[in-house]
């Protein structure tokens, strides 16, 4: 047997700082110590609570009106949380009453912002308004006709297609609570779809993910969103084609940096 020596603690702590993964956990026999076990349980409990929580539409509506922003409230066809989880198709469709209400708000809009709780109402409660504030402040009102803000209960990403089509918006930006991770119960996602209509696929959207202070910061997320909005309008599309181009541009920038160095 080869010789062994005790683990130098500084090396482990150095390694631990290289990843958010749960590494070098304290052991009790082959298992984890009580504290490490309960830490995990707490993280899972927070993620579960985030899934179960419902969006406080009232509070959000008030926040918007305090900014002078008109909002329209809608619901998907999913009646309750269980139905929402089991039937993704229902969460992608407006209920009849909501569709009627939206039709009366229809118009000629360049973009509609849709706030949907998705799988984390907590993400919406924490991050939707900060991102929306920044986005609205950066869009020139002279060239962007913005639809009333849509507040959608029990909505999935593709509900934005139904909403955008009913409203008559050329772009739909869906701010949605993402599926909670164990260490990220409040990640916000933004999905952008050009010419939204029922039947659009995910390949026809662009997505910004993990928006929260510990992930993609508000300012950076807004900068990327505006880039995508402008490009989507200019090229009249969203999705894989737009993403490829954005990545090509980015890698060309990188190559030119390589040459310079």
């Amino acid at each position: 047997m080869a010789d062994r020596r005790p683990a130098p603690l500084d090396i482990f702590s150095k390694l631990r700082s290289a990843t958010p993964a749960r590494i070098f956990l304290p052991r009790a026999g082959t298992g984890l110590t009580t504290r490490a076990t309960l830490d995990f349980q707490l993280a899972h409990a927070e993620a579960r609570d985030a899934v179960e929580e419902r969006l406080d539409v009232e509070a959000l509506d008030e926040e918007l009106s305090s900014r002078g922003l008109a909002a329209v409230r809608v619901r998907s066809a999913a009646r309750d949380r269980r139905g929402f989880l089991l039937r993704p198709d229902l969460g992608r469709r407006l209920d009849d009453e909501s569709r009627a209400r939206l039709k009366s708000a229809a118009g000629d809009y360049d973009i509609a912002f849709i706030i949907a709780e998705g799988l984390s109402a907590r993400a919406i409660a924490r991050h939707a308004i900060p991102v929306l504030d920044r986005a609205l402040a950066s869009l020139d009102p002279a060239s962007w006709k913005i639809a009333p803000i849509i507040l959608a209960e029990q909505g999935r990403v593709a509900l934005g297609d139904d909403i955008g089509e009913t409203l008559g918006a050329r772009l739909a930006a869906v701010l949605i609570g993402e599926r909670p991770g164990l260490s990220s119960p409040d990640s916000l996602g933004v999905y952008l779809t050009y010419a939204p209509r029922i039947g659009r696929t995910d390949a026809e959207r662009n997505c910004l993910s993990n928006i929260r202070p510990q992930g993609l910061a508000y300012d950076e997320a807004t900068r990327k969103l505006l880039y995508l909005c402008n490009e989507a309008r200019r090229r009249r599309l969203t999705g894989v084609a737009l993403k490829d181009e954005a990545e090509t541009l980015a890698s060309e920038e990188l190559r030119s940096i390589d040459v310079k160095n």
Partner: peptide, 22 residues
């Protein structure tokens, strides 16, 4: 590690779980 996949955002089994079952 710790059954928590920090990239794919789901939970699986851990190194420790493998030891326990062995």
């Amino acid at each position: 590690p710790g059954a928590d996949d920090v990239m794919l955002n789901y939970q699986s089994t851990s190194y420790h779980d493998v030891l326990a079952v062995r």
